[in-house]
Amino acid sequence: MEAWLRAVPERLGARPKAVLVVSGHWEAAEFTVNIQNSPPLLYDYSGFPEHTYELEYPVPGSPELAERVQALLARAGYSTNSERSRGLDHGVFIPMKLIYPGADIPLVQLSLRRGLSAAEHVAAGHALEPLRREGVLIIGTGMSFHNMHRFRFDDSALDPDSVCFDEWLAQTVALPPPEREQRLLDWALAPGGRAAHPREEHLLPLHVVAGAAGNDLGRQVFQDRVIGSIQSAFIFGG
């Protein structure tokens, strides 16, 4: 996974002007945008080695991109809020330290909307699609399987529901937009769906990214075994 994340810039080719990240670790009453010039880090985990609380990622924010995100969401009928103190959570700074270790591309974080409606997050992605034509890379971070009670730390066998749901996800992202989005709205009915995500916050960043993909088809670009589950990554376009 580390090697794949480090190779993402080469796969993308063009260097983005800015990055918008939707993480499964931030929920707010309304879609909320971090508008800070220099966002700090939020070490939103416990029980890890001491050095993990000393990690740094001094990436610049982009109030201009944050304002653009809010304007696009408002145009789609969504109220938004601004965040002026919360740090970037580990769903942002951990992968970004590997993808762009120089921390030299402006970055903005967008929250999930409380209530976790699949339809609302796909629609939010639709609203944000113009950003892609403006040189903004939109990243969703979560996990394709996130059931804390079923992770197997001896990695002796794969959870069968993670296998089923991963196959379904790979098939789904590759479909044309209308079919893709309908399946994403009905994700809990998919084989292994609710077992893979007892709570959907780690899946919905994918809904936002898929909504923003427009007519671009998706494809699976990474798969590996992680603590007894299959974990995958997907890209749209490019």
Rank of each mutant, 00 (worst) to 15 (best):
A119N: 12
E120M: 02
V122P: 00
V122K: 04
V122A: 05
A123T: 12
A123H: 11
A123D: 12
A124Y: 00
A124C: 05
A124F: 00
G125D: 06
H126S: 06
G135N: 08
G135P: 04
V136Y: 00
G140N: 06
T141V: 12
T141E: 09
T141W: 03
G142I: 02
F145S: 14
H146G: 05
N147R: 08
M148F: 10
H149G: 15
R150M: 13
F151E: 06
F151W: 08
R152T: 13
F153V: 13
F153T: 14
D155I: 14
D159F: 00
W168G: 08
W168P: 04
L169E: 00
A170K: 03
A170Q: 05
A170L: 00
Q171E: 15
T172D: 07
T172M: 10
T172K: 11
A174F: 04
P176I: 02
P176A: 09
P177C: 08
P178H: 12
E179T: 13
R180E: 02
E181N: 14
E181P: 09
R183P: 01
L185N: 03
D186Q: 13
W187V: 03
A188E: 15
A188W: 08
L189E: 12
A190D: 02
A190N: 07
P191R: 09
G192E: 04
R194Q: 14
A195H: 09
A195C: 03
A196Y: 01
E200L: 06
E201Q: 07
L203H: 01
L204D: 05
L204I: 05
P205G: 11
P205L: 08
L206W: 06
H207G: 10
V208M: 12
V209S: 12
A210C: 09
A212L: 02
A213Q: 04
N215Q: 15
D216L: 12
D216Q: 14
L217E: 09
Q223H: 02
D224E: 12
R225Y: 01
R225H: 10
V226H: 11
I227N: 13
I230R: 15
A233C: 14
F234G: 14
